[in-house]
Design a protein around this nucleic acid. Structure first.
Lengths: 170, 170
DNA sequence: CCTTAACTTCACAAATTTCTGAAAGAAGCG
DNA sequence: CGCTTCTTTCAGAAATTTGTGAAGTTAAGG
């Protein structure tokens, strides 16, 4: 029962494809999106490369590419069980949406490009002022996001209970 | 001087292409990104279709497509000066990043897909619980974002001064 | 060590996306 | 009203992206 055995494959697949489609809509590549959704919908949040390939009907190469992207962006972590050559990919509930909000790296680059623009166009020009305000916006957001995540953790512990966290890795 | 005349075209172009590249990196299509960056860097935040085409070296068709996307996502508004058949496209500083955070629509769709997943997989299964927590996260974020924008407006008025707003449309 | 099971990399074919020129469609202006 | 100027739509060429099979690489286990 800890495996796919007793589960409604139809329902899982429907969720996986539907949620992946939404992720794609938001700009994520197709394969990473599908792999990620599959992990989210798995019982333990862990699947092997072979399981992913079979469930999604994609080649090992596709799994490899998708997982590389997902681990680079810290949405999924890879583990290898000692004494096996199977690799296992895991989604940690907390870790992954922390990663999602770590578009911070992107915000930083935007802010940098804008600062350059202000310098080159002149801070006293209309365009320069517009860019400066935009830059200030991103810096503001950047700071707010980490505060928001702090509040989320408090909120989550209130709603879902605090004791559950260590149980996630059985 | 209110036109491109006295401006450093080189500097403008450098900013436009650099910032557009960052937007593309974050998932925006190329042409919308370039058009948007060009508007940001323009003196009045307003450019005509022809000006955009000339500055970016793209066809009228490309401008049309890019602008359609940008106005659908409320990042740019289109106006037609009465008595002219030239259309003008404007970026309102405030309006556009409000639009950016209005990924709310996306968050809503994600939350919906997740809720369906919880129902179909069962709220009492491990996967169901994971999905439920993720759903709760997005709902939390969704609420926080509008509060954050409120704080931003206060912050902005403190830093940039309050009186400047009506001056934006001379 | 050699074998074998697994993952990764690479070159290419297929599918998709992107941008253009050309034609069609609006809307001012005489 | 018809001419003219601008914008939009559309079909297709070009470029990019995507996913695969096959070869290459790593590491476990005899």
């Amino acid at each position: 029962m800890t495996d796919q055995a007793g589960r409604d494959r139809e329902a899982v697949s429907k969720f996986v494809e539907g949620f992946a489609a939404q992720l794609v809509e938001a700009g994520m590549q197709r394969m990473p999106a599908r792999v990620f959704a599959a992990l989210l919908a798995s019982d333990d949040g862990v699947l092997t490369s072979a399981e992913l390939g079979e469930q999604l009907r994609i080649s090992p190469a596709a799994v490899s590419g998708a997982v590389r992207y997902l681990s680079q962006t810290h949405m999924v972590s890879r583990e290898r069980e000692p004494g096996s050559r199977r690799e296992r990919y895991r989604v940690h509930s907390d870790q992954w949406y922390e990663a999602l909000t770590n578009r911070e790296a992107i915000l930083k680059r935007w802010a940098y490009a804008l600062r350059e623009g202000v310098e080159n166009l002149g801070a006293d020009t209309p365009a320069g002022r517009r860019l400066a305000e935009t830059q200030a916006f991103f810096e503001f957001i950047d700071g707010e996001i980490s505060l928001m995540m702090d509040r989320w953790r408090v909120h989550r512990d209130q709603v879902f209970g605090e004791g559950r966290r260590p149980a996630e890795d059985p």
